[in-house]
Design a protein around this nucleic acid. Sequence first.
DNA 1: GTATGTGAAACCGTTCACAGCA
DNA 2: TGCTGTGAACGGTTTCACATAC
Lengths: 214, 214
Amino acid sequence: MKFVKIPSIVITRLSTYARNLKILEQKGVDVVSSVRLADICGTNPAQIRKDLAYFGQFGVKGVGYYVKELLFEIGKILGLDKEWRLGLVGVGNLGLALLRHTHFMNHGYTFVAAFDEKPERIDIRIGDIEVAPLEAINRLVKEKGVEIGVIAIKPVWAQKAADMLVMAGVCGIVNFAPIQLQCATHVFIENVDFSLKLDILCYRLTSARSRQRR
Amino acid sequence: MKFVKIPSIVITRLSTYARNLKILEQKGVDVVSSVRLADICGTNPAQIRKDLAYFGQFGVKGVGYYVKELLFEIGKILGLDKEWRLGLVGVGNLGLALLRHTHFMNHGYTFVAAFDEKPERIDIRIGDIEVAPLEAINRLVKEKGVEIGVIAIKPVWAQKAADMLVMAGVCGIVNFAPIQLQCATHVFIENVDFSLKLDILCYRLTSARSRQRR
DNA sequence: GTATGTGAAACCGTTCACAGCA
DNA sequence: TGCTGTGAACGGTTTCACATAC
């Protein structure tokens, strides 16, 4: 078997396919062709087939893909066939939104710990979780088996939080703070960046307007 | 002047450059070379120079870039040299986080209206803003001059919210709901997608682990 | 000497087009 | 016939390398 580097955009699309396959499954659709799925996902049929080809052959020639089967296979590829344990740093409004609102999340993810730097937030209970101080990160990450850290704290604290998470053994971080975290190379970081998206929109709106004015 | 299509990844990077130039400015740094800036931004010096070349010549040969000047120019390119008026749909925890916590945002963006579908949230005041029902979108978007809509409402309501915003004249939307919005082609949509980022991390962690096991 | 700006080359991802199979 | 899987062609982005200017 050859070593093939998989572009990260492929992974992004797989997640999109999974999301839309779930919707098809709920609608009771059994089989879907790459053309139909591409239409739904806003991409190209060849792209879907190429993306899947990185991982194997999941379709039936002349027929298409069985929705449930493909969903299962993509889940396996992405690693969604297990429960992932999340630790939250920062229990402000954003943190609370993440903790409470499961509709912003897929199944398979559970918050098992939460931390904050503000003394008045310590010991507050949210569901099953008790908010702990940042100093408890090392102990609780190990105790609760946190695998992914979610940073939703003020930017000034974000790097410290990341350092503590990594020190405790966390290898994956979703960062909501608008700064670039510096971590060891074995740590995977994904940024969720509202102000970046706003900047992109500004540019598009600005250039669309200046084009109109001509 | 030639028409050159600018890749959207260039815009993304410009925003990153701006963010880091701001930090350099605060530190009192006057001049920065593309090598140094690339180092900070985690990219390649040639890439920075190529990105900027789409828009003009902003450096001094043998010297580098004047931080303040370059920051100003990038701001002008992105359209950050004006105030942008935002309208929020969905005043749950996430919406409140966006409204209140300015550290998730750059300067230059101001929320001027907020909407929610839950009757108990209507008429609540947050700062200068009074929460209005979705039905008021059309009127208030026009009255307050909303230019960008921010959707932080439950997925089931998201498409309706988008439709109403677009109907009222909004051409840019930042969407936090984990669904793909369908809008007219003149509308720019940027998605902020937590569960997508989680899926990417899962994949990376899973494949890193399976690589270790070998 | 030093760092930008930019053609040219290398690289990578997307799309095409068709062989192969149900 | 219909749709997948895939080599080949294409198009676009990144990187290199050097002429140019301070």
